[in-house]
Write a protein that binds this DNA or RNA. Sequence first.
DNA 1: CCTACCGATCGGTAGG
DNA 2: CCTACCGATCGGTAGG
Lengths: 207, 207
Amino acid sequence: MDHETSTTSRGGYAKGDARREAIVDVATDVFATLGFRAATMLQIAAACGISRTGLLHHFPSKESLLEAVLSRRDERSATLIPKRVGTDDDDRAALARMVALMRHNADSPTIINLFSVLSAEAGDPAHPAHAYFVSRYASLRSELIESLTRLHRRGGLTAGTDPTALAVELIALMDGLQVQWVLAPDQVDMAGVLRHRIDAALLRPLD
Amino acid sequence: MDHETSTTSRGGYAKGDARREAIVDVATDVFATLGFRAATMLQIAAACGISRTGLLHHFPSKESLLEAVLSRRDERSATLIPKRVGTDDDDRAALARMVALMRHNADSPTIINLFSVLSAEAGDPAHPAHAYFVSRYASLRSELIESLTRLHRRGGLTAGTDPTALAVELIALMDGLQVQWVLAPDQVDMAGVLRHRIDAALLRPLD
DNA sequence: CCTACCGATCGGTAGG
DNA sequence: CCTACCGATCGGTAGG
């Protein structure tokens, strides 16, 4: 949170930044596979081809590395999900992007694992990412509730739909599909099930 | 899996069995909080008020303790969810029990955490519970698909419902609601959302 | 021969 | 980035 360095390279630090980015990529994989607590700095260092103390040169603690992994993820998803909405079509587009995201994630199981494992172990208030996930889900809910409420006011949702309950349901559906998909990729059509549920809530289905 | 001892006490071993049961309860809590990999035998032993070697006397390895925790959970849920179904009412009752289970789980966050954390970290094929969760979800899916298919054939579901997709969706919904609920219990009405989704799929709502 | 442990220690590894 | 370390703790096993 309080690391001034970013992934954008500044004059004279290109090499160090490139190394940091490579480390964050590796750490993402390891945290995704083992979770934060069971992952070790030695494993991550070895996968980077450096020593454990060399790793600590770039990230002074395991938690600082976790912060870097999460903020990198936030940057990436921010580019995929723009903030400015307001029209009916924008809100429908936001739902379409959720489906596209599920389809995209089916090709990058690492990210699926990362959030499944971390959000589960972050349920413990003592977990270093607990606050992050609490506020992450709060943001997801409030943004989706806003979108669905606008859609509902403009008559875009089927009668009797509660925008708040639907927002909670759709977020839960995405998370649960990912857990199930990791254990049986062939049996779970993540994007298809989500798309079907969203279309059932919309008066006019997605394109 | 291959431990002949059960939780039922046999003549002369009541004390040992009671101790084993107490240990399994404590281990359930610790695994639920930390996950399997990050939990330590020392923590579990300390929480039981015995030494680590005393713990190992009862369970020769950490994995054997995990097996005991999971099979205990299976016994408990087996008493809650009987196997013999076949009539239309039985299949509707199975859906009602899913809602009741969500309501019940909201009072025992430990079990929620246990399955959220373990099923997420078991996505790694190298995890000792990987096979368990793969087959657990396969069973859940096939049993629910059976129930929903019977209901559908008897005209109990709304038109255009795919029993297989609905089974995947309902299981995902339950899992995702639990992850979200742990992080914000006041914002997530687990049983309410599930109930609402099930009623939307049924021609005649649950009682 | 059974149970229910104990204190000590094995070779390795944790985060820093 | 590395070698050299620290206090502690890991899962598992020894004899008693």
